[in-house]
């Protein structure tokens, strides 16, 4: 009742919120719509339903290579940035020391730097060092831009962690490592998995850094970029894009559910979305 009344009282605001969500989702929704359309160009009216664009995907070797590359890069970047994120988040939430805020600021900096700057500066150093561009250099770049997100997820997970839980474990005779294994790790596991998923998603979707730092091997976004030059390839790209969208949605939903689970356990609200 009261919810309904409040909704009506703020009618214009609610209507705006609704329109805003439409604005956010509408462009994204055209990808799946035109990926099952028979016409080769995306325009109205729709000409008919087909799955042939999807059926073509597994028959494209270059695409399969790109998908495999994306998987390798994504998994490596997710693991590496989460490990680095765990160390940093633990340090930031648990200890007080001079320079803590400055170091935190530096680690979070890629979040507010133009991506092109991050990409070209890494490119310059790698070329200067005489390293060859490869998927490895892409991982290096992806880890750099993923750490801030990993930190955000993990800091929220660690912050609600009551320090006396670890003291209680020590008090009951458990060693430092045993305490980490039996108390700390199970408590923060959801946040860690959530961080892995978020970082994997970022790496999977990231284009610019991969574009600059990869050698001959393409990731999925780079493959898509290459296909965009050919108008005739557009429906296939739409189909692939739809699959990528679905993957991102799925991964982020799981990450969010895990994050909430962790928040309930540590009685701590917040995280990526707050």
């Amino acid at each position: 009742m009261t919810a309904m009344r409040r909704f009506l009282a703020n009618g214009w605001l609610s209507a705006y919120a609704f329109l805003y969500v439409v604005f956010l989702y509408l462009p994204v929704i055209f990808l799946p719509i035109f990926s099952v359309n028979t016409a080769a160009t995306p325009k109205f009216p729709l000409s008919g339903f087909t799955l042939k664009w999807y059926e073509d995907l597994p028959r494209t070797p270059a695409l399969l290579d790109a998908a495999w590359n994306s998987l390798v890069v994504g998994v490596s970047a997710a693991i590496l940035s989460t490990v680095l994120g765990i160390l940093a988040a633990r340090s930031i939430t648990r200890y007080r020391y001079p320079g803590r805020r400055a170091i935190n600021g530096l680690i979070m900096a890629p979040l507010v730097l133009p991506e092109i700057i991050v990409a070209i500066s890494l490119l310059l150093v790698i070329l200067q060092l005489g390293l060859s561009l490869s998927l490895f250099t892409v991982v290096l770049g992806h880890v750099l831009v993923s750490i801030p997100y990993s930190m955000t997820v993990l800091t929220a997970g660690f912050e609600g962690f009551d320090r006396s839980l670890e003291e209680a474990s020590a008090d009951l005779g458990e060693s430092a490592f045993g305490t980490f294994r039996r108390v700390t790790l199970p408590m923060v596991a959801p946040a860690i998995i959530s961080s892995l998923l978020v970082c994997f998603t970022i790496s999977l979707d990231e284009f610019l850094i991969a574009f600059f730092l990869t050698g001959t091997e393409a990731t999925l976004p780079i493959y898509i970029w290459g296909q965009l030059r050919f108008a005739s390839k557009l429906p296939g790209v739409l189909a692939l894009g739809t699959l990528l969208l679905a993957a991102s949605f799925l991964l982020m939903t799981v990450a969010e559910i895990l994050r909430r689970h962790a928040a309930k356990r540590t009685q701590n609200e917040g995280g990526l979305y707050a």
Binding site: L84, G85, L87, A88, R90, S91, I92, R94, Y95, R96, Y97, P98, G99, R100, I103, L106, I107, A109, P110, I117, V118, I120, S121, L122, L124, V125, Q128, L140, G141, V143, L144, I147
Partner: peptide, 26 residues
């Protein structure tokens, strides 16, 4: 301070080598 700094140093060094150093090179 020592424990906290030791814990954050891998991440800090990563950002230093792959962000600060490259920008200086630029």
């Amino acid at each position: 301070p020592v424990q906290g700094f030791a814990l954050i140093s891998p991440t800090f060094l990563y950002a230093l080598i792959l962000l600060v150093l490259p920008i200086l090179v630029v």
